[in-house]
Amino acid sequence: MKPKVAFFDFTSCEGCQLDVLNLTGEELLDLLAGVEIVSFREAISRNDEDYDIAFIEGSISRDSEIPRLQKIRKQAKILVAMGACACIGGVNCLKNHLTMNEALTMVYGADAKQFDTIPARPINAVVPVDAYIRGCPAQTGEFAKLVKALLIGKKPETPSYPVCTECKMAGNICVYELGKTCIGPVTRAGCGAICVTGGRQCWGCRGLVDEPNINSQEEILKKYGLTPAQVVEKFKIYNTYSEVKK
């Protein structure tokens, strides 16, 4: 019997789920030959509560999200965090630098009192997670890779090395050589250094490697002319949660 798959979104832009739909028509058919999608708000109207694999997009930033996530965890045999918000907290955690009242007022102004919010967190801060599809957004290829791994019975793996390794494999000229800076040296690879290859720089959307040499990275950023505040900014965008936890 085909495993039943469901997609859920929490605090997020839903871009990661949208990216799943970027699979080619043939690939989508192959995917559907292997799994049965029983809940996927962005693509189908079906919404079953009986599923085996749950893909979670988004971080947790409201109290009401916690029991919902716990319920999903209870049902799902395998729970996959999909995208930067779910995996590492992502950009939502930028508000953690403010008090919650400041954040609400900043966003909703006079209506702030109608909303509640808590500091944002990745889903593994609430429930155990079995696998991660990293990145902002999570990429189609990695989604497919994970599904294949689950179907074939292989442990889903992402590289333990940082973006630099893949950036060199991609043949890029280092952004530091071009007078810019990035945090690729401490950011987990798997993206193929897509941002640098595309002419940008790495902002760390995939989270930090297991043993990031943060001190050395900070010294390097300073050596390349960043002020301490700018160094903090570099890590803030995606890695606030892990940095604050530290």
Binding site: Y161, P162, C164, K168, E211, N213, S216
Partner: peptide
Amino acid sequence: ASTCLSCGSCVMV
């Protein structure tokens, strides 16, 4: 080695 980032750049290039 204390400042090594284990980024692999040296071996990749």
